[in-house]
Design a binder for these strands. Structure first.
Length: 950
DNA sequence: AATTGCGCATA
DNA sequence: GTATGCGCAATTG
């Protein structure tokens, strides 16, 4: 560890904003009526940094008067930023006073931004042999990073991450941090109003950086570009260069780094105490005194871990992280869970890690292997197949691992009979109740094995599901997990079988040796991930969710997917013909009205016809890409004045219907079963819902008469069966009523009232019998809106009400249901304090933006805080119902099957003789899945197709 | 052949 | 206002 001096440069406004918004919903106001939120927030961060890092040198940098140079270059620079809030402006003088009393130097330079001051100072310090840490969340600073200059970014939930050169290289895909300027210049930055190059976003910018290295490189080589992109860039040379200059942090601010002045000195304790007292800070005073107590701080500081590392924190991260090993926190006292220790490392791969992977080829060896396998208590396995579609997949091999770094691969013969013989040898393992099976996305393996008539029994541990509960917002690919948690890069599948498309190999064509390396590595890594996640699941609720909901559900979903649903192809093809007719007719009259033929489906061409040729409107609305907007709402508005518009809308509707459903669905019928098998994704929706794809059976039309017809194509297995649809009535509204304990609403549900009419009767103050259709409809819109976190603006867009009428309606609504309002506020407060919200079963959704200083971003997080527990609890409840129903169906050996889930609805193929039993079983299980203060109500419908069963 | 934005289907 | 997935056009590789 070096004993290089460490300088911390704090980006004051960034931390002040963060602090201020942390308290925005319940601001700190002292008895003098001063809003002290910003001061409190900032001081907490500052003390936190000092406590964690014990810098020897520290300064706080402010902006002053904005950047004269930048505004001179570009008038709009930062023009669309909100004005500084009152609470922040008044805080600044106080903060300066405190810093002064703490003997912490304040660096400002009129006409320069803090970025520039920090940039300049960090370079000067570097020359004098310092390591500099720029304390800021702002990504722009990445351009300043060098071997000796780091970003020290606060991350949500407390803690910091350090960005050195490797992090910047990775994050921005650049070779040197300096290229971040080119990158930002190319793609622009809307919050700073850096325009960027038109048509260049993140992807293209990264590509250009790799290809040309810089903005100048790009502009000098536009001859290598083609088409539209070439034109646009050549036409915007100046803009590009300007953008780059705007993005560049200046390094020549007339300030001077004087080591002596920046030394972290002892504060004038009395003076600071006095100021804090005037501001009425109690806890902060304690915190301050502890931070500057002369003794060893790491023992007294509450946030430090109990490990007895030396109190003096270490310097720049240097250690190599070893795969699988616990992370060693490089900043002595820092919280190791949230401090990301970086980084001069290369990631491990199978080439740099010792391992023992072996294939088990001969019959004799296989028998010995299975004998060994059966002695294990917990084994990770992974199937390799010829297809991602489990119904078409043939086994190519199965990898097993039960010890990190070791594993075996059993290759499968191509001959079906021989393969079946081999699986019989392995059957005892899979069907053993006492051996735990570990895997990544086990639903897939279970489905593949089911096709070989093998059932996977015993306890399961799915690393993908585990990670979904631990961190629902991340992706859960094994490759990503391995890199994140094990610092290990597995062999990529493309390395083995090539890019998707023409020359892609089947796994079968890969040499055995490579199959073994790849497959066993997967099993090995998954096993190691399991060990990691097992600990993280520790939280009582999460563990329970995993064991009692997600893992059992995986088997249920596998069965539903294997079952599929019967589709009436003939019906769809006749529907398709009808649609074709109608579309052709519309097409004809549209071309007539327009006077020419064009692609109606192309918004671009359509816009030109409508607004340039026909000039239907004086000043047409444009989209942000500069085209005429032909969006639904714009056109609907014009529809009553122009027949052609209505025809275009009809055309669009019918084409969409035809292409997305009527023509697409029959193509998804699985040849081997003659049925449609959707794939439920258990780990994509952040709220805990399932999603469905290939095909998506959760968005089959129902609202319009025409669209609804598609549902007729979903039919029972045969004449002996009927379809049954069971859906929860108003489940989300019942949940919010129950969780908020809003008695008025709870009573309405208990009495079985029409909840929207009931709401209307109360907010419009009329007897329930006299509620008009319009009143009920408006009440319904608000009821739904509440679940999403309504605004008056949103409501007036959805109803005929004006903005002020909407506002009034919302206020009356809250007055009618005061506890509902209180509940929403509580959720937001909880999120602010804890960084997450949770469902009835403790499923968490983390909301990193809940304290954002951007009002729009923060607002979205607040709506999430209200919506996620509602939507997520509903998802929890139906999952419980599915598991219980599935179990009952198995226990009773019923022929009836559960086929589909559509968020609040379950669809079954019912064997007619079982119908009465099923009605009772399904309704009972769904209504009793979870006990709330409001009864759950389920509607059942039966029919010869999905439309009738509704 | 793959990515992006738009528009639109569901709960 | 929440949560998704998919088809098409447009644009490039």
């Amino acid at each position: 560890m070096s004993d290089q001096k460490r300088l911390f440069l704090v980006d004051a406004y960034a931390l002040i904003f963060r602090g201020y918004y942390a308290f925005i919903k319940n601001p700190r106001i002292n008895s003098k009526g001063e809003d002290t939120s910003a001061i409190m927030g900032f001081m907490n961060s500052l003390l936190d940094v000092i406590k964690r890092e014990r810098p020897d040198h520290l300064a706080v940098c402010f902006d002053k008067g904005g950047s004269v140079d930048r505004v001179e270059m570009f008038e709009a620079y930062k023009a669309n930023r909100d004005e500084t809030p009152e609470g922040i402006r008044t805080a600044i003088p106080h903060i300066c006073n405190i810093l002064e009393a703490m003997h912490i130097p304040i660096m400002v330079k009129e006409g320069y931004e803090a970025d520039d001051v920090i940039g300049t100072l960090s370079r000067q310090a570097e020359k004098e042999g310092y390591k500099t840490f720029m304390v800021t969340p702002d990504k722009d600073f990445a351009q300043l990073v060098t071997d000796n200059i780091f970003m020290y970014r606060p991350v949500f939930g407390g803690g910091y991450e350090t960005w050195g050169i490797p992090e910047v290289q990775k994050k921005f895909e650049v070779e040197t941090p300096m290229q971040v300027v080119d990158f930002l210049g190319m793609m622009g930055d809307s919050s700073d109003n850096i325009p960027g190059l038109p048509g260049v976003g993140e992807k293209t910018a990264k590509k250009f950086i790799k290809q040309f290295g810089s903005m100048e490189g790009l502009l000098a080589n536009t001859d290598q570009l083609k088409g539209k992109m070439k034109e646009k860039i050549e036409a915007n040379r100046e803009l590009g260069l300007l953008s780059k200059e705007l993005a560049r942090i200046m390094l020549d601010v007339p300030v001077e780094f004087n080591a002596k002045d920046f030394e972290l000195d002892h504060p004038d304790v009395e003076k600071v105490k006095q100021i804090f007292q005037d501001l009425e800070f109690r806890r902060l005073t304690d915190n301050f005194l502890k931070t500057f107590a002369p003794q060893d701080v790491s023992d007294s500081s509450p946030s430090t871990s109990s490990t007895t590392e030396k109190p003096k924190p270490t310097s720049t991260p240097k250690e190599k992280k070893s795969a699988g090993a616990g992370q060693f926190s490089l900043f002595g006292g820092a919280d190791s869970d949230t401090t990301e220790t970086s980084s001069e490392y290369t990631r491990n791969t199978s080439e740099t890690t010792s391992h023992f992977y072996q294939s088990v080829a001969s019959g004799m060896a296989t028998k010995l292997f299975v004998k060994n396998l059966m002695n294990q208590t917990s084994v990770c396995f992974d199937t390799e197949t010829t297809s991602l579609n489990p119904l078409q997949a043939e086994l190519v091999g199965i990898a097993f691992s039960w010890e990190a770094g070791k594993g075996f691969y059993v290759p499968f013969p191509e001959d079906k009979n021989e393969a079946q013989e081999l699986i019989e040898v392995l059957r005892p393992f899979f069907e053993n109740e006492n051996i735990e099976k570990i895997g990544q996305n086990l639903k897939y393996d279970i489905k593949v094995l089911a096709k070989y008539n093998v059932e996977v029994k015993g306890k399961l541990f799915d690393t993908m599901l585990a990670h979904y509960l631990i961190n629902p917002d991340m992706r859960h690919n094994m490759d990503v997990l391995a890199e994140t948690y094990l610092n290990y890069t597995p062999i990529s599948i493309t390395e083995l079988i090539g890019k998707k498309g023409k020359n892609q190999l089947s796994m079968r064509e890969v040499p055995l040796e490579k199959q073994t390396e790849y497959a066993v590595e997967d099993a090995d890594i998954t096993l190691q991930l399991k060990e990691h996640f097992e600990k993280e699941l520790g939280e009582a609720n999460t563990q329970k969710l995993f064991d009692e909901i997600e893992v059992p559900l995986l088997r249920v979903l596998a069965d539903m997917e294997l079952e599929g649903i019967n589709l009436d192809k003939d019906f769809l093809s006749s529907l398709s013909e009808q649609l074709n007719n109608d579309i052709a007719n519309l097409e004809k009259s549209i071309y007539e009205a327009a006077g020419e033929e064009f692609n109606i489906a192309s918004p671009k061409q359509l816009g030109v016809i409508l607004f340039e040729k026909m000039k239907l409107v004086d000043k047409p609305k444009k989209t942000k890409t500069g085209q005429y907007s032909t969006a639904e709402d714009v056109l609907s508005y014009l529809a009553k004045d122009h027949d052609i518009i209505q025809q275009i809308l009809d055309y669009r509707g019918l084409s969409k219907l035809k292409s997305t459903y009527v023509d697409a669905l029959p193509l998804q019928v699985e040849e081997s079963t003659g049925r449609v098998h959707t794939d439920y994704m258990q780990t994509v929706a952040a709220t805990g819902r399932l999603s469905s794809n290939n095909p998506n059976l959760q968005n089959i039309p129902i609202r319009t008469e025409r669209g609804r017809q598609v549902r007729k194509a979903f039919v029972p297995r045969n004449e002996e069966y009927t379809l049954l649809a069971a859906d929860y009535s108003q489940i989300e509204l019942r949940i919010i009523a129950a969780l908020s304990e809003e008695e008025t609403m709870i009573e309405a549900f208990k009495n079985g009232e029409d909840i929207h009419a009931s709401t209307a009767s109360r907010v419009f103050n009329v007897p329930i019998a006299e509620v008009t259709r319009e009143q009920r409809s408006n009440a319904k819109t608000v009821n739904f809106g509440i679940i999403y976190g309504v605004s008056a603006f949103g409501l007036s867009n959805q109803t005929d009400l004006s903005r002020s009428e909407s506002k009034e309606l919302i206020e009356t609504y809250y007055a009618t249901y005061p506890k509902l309002k209180a509940y929403m506020g509580k959720q937001v407060d909880f999120a602010r304090d804890n960084g997450y919200v949770q469902t009835v079963l403790g499923r968490r959704r983390y909301l990193k933006d809940i304290n954002s200083r951007n009002a729009v971003v923060r607002g979205a997080a607040e709506r999430n805080a209200v919506n996620a527990p509602i939507q997520g609890s509903a998802a929890d409840i139906i999952k419980i119902a599915m598991i219980n129903i599935h179990q009952k169906l198995q226990e009773g050996a019923y022929k009836s099957k559960m086929l589909l889930q559509v968020h609040d609805e379950l669809v079954f193929d019912i064997y007619k003789p079982e119908l009465e039993d099923m009605k009772i079983l399904i309704k009972t299980e769904m209504e009793s899945a979870y006990k709330l203060k409001v009864p759950l109500d389920v509607d059942l419908d039966i029919g010869d197709n999905w439309l009738e069963a509704h």
